[in-house]
Every structure is written in C-alpha cells, then in structure tokens.
Design a protein around this nucleic acid. Structure first.
Lengths: 195, 195
DNA sequence: ACCTGAACACCGTTCAAGT
DNA sequence: ACCTGAACACCGTTCAAGT
C-alpha cells in the first residue's frame, strides 16, 4: 500500500507553477480553481488562503510572472535594451497560455518596477525620451511574440488533453524566427538613437 | 401598457454586435451566453441556432470581426501597407475587450484571407519576402495597439458596470499616440525595402 | 495557521418540446 | 425554422467548521 503522501505545504509559488502548467497545456479557458486544486492535491478552496482575491489575483500573478524580467545593468544602453528584450521574449514564449493576459493587462507590481528600472537605465544613458523608448521596445517584443505564437499553432484544439507543451525556447527555438527578431531589434535600436 | 415588443429576428450579425458591446464595456470574462441572451431579449439557448459550435464559435467570430480588414488595392505597396496597418490599428483599438483574442488566436476565415490578400499585393509589387513583410507589419500593429490599450487603463476594475467604453478612435484618438504610430510605421516600411 | 465540506448563485451545453 | 424549459455537469466564492 502507498505511504500516506507527505503533504507539501501549499504556497503562492507552487500555485502559480501549477497554474502555468495548466494554462500552457490546456489553455486559459480550462484553468479552473477546481482543476488547479486537483493538480495541487488540495481542495480548490485552499487556494484562497494564499491568493485572497481568488481567480483575479491568480490572473494578475500569472501576468506578472511572465512579464517581470530583470537584467543586469552593465554595458551601453543598447546592450541593456537588447538583454531586456531577449529576456522578455523568452519569458513570453515559454508560456503561450498566459500570453493573452501578458499583452493585455496593465503592468503591476514587479512587472511595473521592471519597466521603471529599464526606463531609468535608458535615462541615465542620456536618451532623449526614455519612456517612449521603453514603450517602443515593449511594443516590439509584444508584437513579435504574438505573431510567433499565433503561427506556432498553439491555441488550436490539438485534439488530446495533457499534451506537454514544449517551449520553443529550449536552445533558442526556430533559428529563422530568432534571426528575424534580432534583425528587427537592431533596426529599432538604431531608430531610437535619432529621436 | 407597452406594446408587445416586435421580435426582431436573431442573426449572427446581431449576436456579434451585442457580444462586442458586452466585451468592450464589461470585459471578456463577463461575456456569457446567458448575459448575451439577455442583451438580445432571447433565451441563451437560442444563440446556438445561429452559432452551432457555441461559445467557441462566438470567440472565433469576435476575433475574426476585429481582425479582418480590407483596403482598396490602388497605389504603391507602401501606400497599401500603410492603409492596411492603419485600418487594422483602428479596428483593434475600437474593441479592446476582444484584443486578447485578436492577438492570440491564429487567423481564420476572412481574417486569413485578408492576410493572403495583403501578401499578394506586396508580392505583385516585387517585394523580396512578402510573407515576412506582412508578418512584420502585423507584429508592429499588434505591439503598438497592445501597449496603447494597456496604457489606456482599460481592463482595470473601473468600478461601475455598464460604462459605455468610448473608443479613442473617434476622430483619431490621442494625437501623440497617432504620431508615434506613424513614425514607427514609416521606419518599418523603410526597413522593409532593403531586405 | 491552514485546509475541508457544504452551500449558493451562476456557468455552457443537450435535448425534447413548443410554435 | 426558430425559440423555449428543464436538466446536467461544472464553475467561483462564502462561510462555518475542523485540525
């Protein structure tokens, strides 16, 4: 007979991880408090103890998780911006299930501070309109990832249930898409200088 | 006493219009078959007669509605691309409630043909990689609208219920955002030539 | 402090039935 | 052909209760 399962204590982190897994493999529409509870070996109501605002809080947390990136401050502003954009793209691509949230919800918490941080780095480097530049960089990443994920055919029925969504970012994904991204990024950075 | 309401027959078009209104004013999460039925003075089950696949079909239809743009073919490829991007941006901004669907669902039906159409126009003009160009243009519009709508503060509680979301596109919206959009668009078009 | 059980109002969808 | 009513399985969330 199986030993009584050791009850790993629930935590905000474990909840978010499980939620990401469900959203990425089955879609946001199937991410349900009850299903999430099942995945965590817990009754759905237990989740409310860790996320008091319930499903809204969960959605906020998911958007924040996939959207709050941090990069080391060293180097020129171009290098900083490059690193930031690449990290953002990687994070968004890794979790197509919550992309709709990430592109749509206004940044809060750590996501908002990440934006402020990046804006300051560009300001310190003497860029004329750092806020506008960060806006343009975010828009570039958002658009690029949106068409990438659309083209990847994620979101379509896919037939079976728990297909383990393999992120294209393991090892860098399609080299063609990577090259396109880098090309457009360089063009944007060049355009940002003469503003 | 009020006269017996004249029963305007239900139709796919009326359903989609009502759904857009609900999504834009209350958010996608509150767009419900039952609420939609109420708005149409009909039991929810009547909707299934016009959209056999139910809510999935409705979501597809909404994404398609806001994403299938058509522009007249005349002029240079740059003019054609400009018109296409402006029309796309306008359509997406008009309905922030379904933006998440539009950015996320792979194009189908009229939306897919609109893309093919635009690709052909760029191909006929002799562009080297017309498909890649359309991809870049779509990404640009998607990203621009995503940060615009995020910044507009749509999606946040807003407190009250049936606030009649006023589209910023009546008359062109914020002139600053418009200028940014046009600037980035010209830069992208220039970049597309030397590919 | 952390989790459960029962309960409530509300979902999407089906199906037989009405007109 | 088009719509309704009743029914079913499933939601999110609350609250009192258990440990």
């Amino acid at each position: 007979m199986p030993a009584k399962r050791p009850p790993i204590p629930l935590s905000r982190e474990r909840i978010i991880d499980a939620a990401l897994h469900i959203a990425d493999s089955q879609g946001l529409r199937r991410l349900t408090m009850r299903r999430l509870g099942d995945a965590l070996q817990v009754e759905a109501m237990a989740i409310y103890h860790h996320l008091p605002r319930g499903k809204d809080a969960l959605m906020d947390a998911l958007a924040e998780h996939v959207t709050a990136v941090h990069v080391e401050p060293g180097g020129s502003w171009q290098e900083s911006a490059r690193a930031w954009c690449r990290a953002s793209r990687a994070a968004l691509r890794e979790h197509p299930g919550v992309l709709a949230l990430a592109l749509t919800k206004p940044p809060k918490g750590r996501a908002a501070s990440a934006i402020r941080e990046q804006t300051e780095q560009l300001a310190e480097a003497g860029l004329a309109d750092p806020a506008g530049a960060v806006r343009a960089l975010r828009a570039y990443v958002f658009g690029a990832v949106a068409v990438e994920v659309q083209r990847s055919g994620w979101a379509e029925p896919s037939g079976d249930g728990d297909e383990p969504w393999r992120p294209p970012s393991r090892g860098g994904g399609s080299p063609e898409a990577d090259a396109d991204f880098e090309l457009g990024l360089e063009a944007l950075l060049a355009g940002l200088t003469g503003r």
